[in-house]
């Protein structure tokens, strides 16, 4: 282990998270969710700590982290705006809405504005298919998002 030497406090915190889940069947995802919740992302330095706790290789932990869209390797912006790209929302104009969001924020999907205020993510279905286009703003669902509503959301997010 050379590159990802964990600072002692991070190590201790991640080890404590691991310890809380060790009795469970298949503890990896619950651990990763908690690590991301604690740090806002899954720091590279956390991987060897998790690997040690679960008795797997760091490469295996990396493989799991990188497989899932939810886990970030760097912190997101202060606000995360997810816009649904799936078919039902497309039938109600989600593509134009996404283009408007990208243009206003000056980022593409997964991008964060230069001032760090907003990260824009695609999401494939929020189950709000009868009131699309739909969005998830910092974990809160929003339906029938038109351009005016989008502007208000981004305004409030400080972008």
């Amino acid at each position: 282990m050379h590159s990802a030497q964990a600072p002692a406090d991070l190590s201790a915190q991640v080890a404590a998270i691991c310890a809380a889940h060790l009795g469970r069947e298949g503890p990896m995802l619950p651990i990763l969710h908690d690590v991301q919740h604690a740090f806002g992302h899954v720091p590279e330095a956390a991987l060897p700590v998790i690997a040690l706790a679960l008795n797997v290789t760091t490469a295996e932990v990396h493989g799991v982290v990188s497989f899932y869209h939810d886990f970030r390797d760097a912190p997101a912006g202060r606000h995360v705006v997810k816009i649904c790209r799936a078919e039902a929302c497309q039938a109600m104009g989600a593509n134009d809405l996404a283009d408007a969001a990208k243009a206003r924020l000056g980022v593409d999907w997964h991008g964060t504005t230069t001032d760090g205020s907003v990260t824009l993510e695609p999401v494939y279905c929020l189950g709000l298919c009868a009131c699309g286009p739909a969005a998830l703003v910092d974990g809160v669902v929003v339906g029938r998002v038109d351009k005016a509503r989008l502007d208000a959301i981004l305004e409030e997010a400080g972008a």
Binding site: G26, P27, M28, L29, H33, Y68, H69, D70
Partner: peptide, 28 residues
Amino acid sequence: MEIRIGAGAYVCGEETSLLNSLEGKRGV
């Protein structure tokens, strides 16, 4: 029983990849 949370992979709706994911592996 217990509630387990996915991590944003559509393919995990397929039953065998769901099982892998639940076991803590890549959802292959």
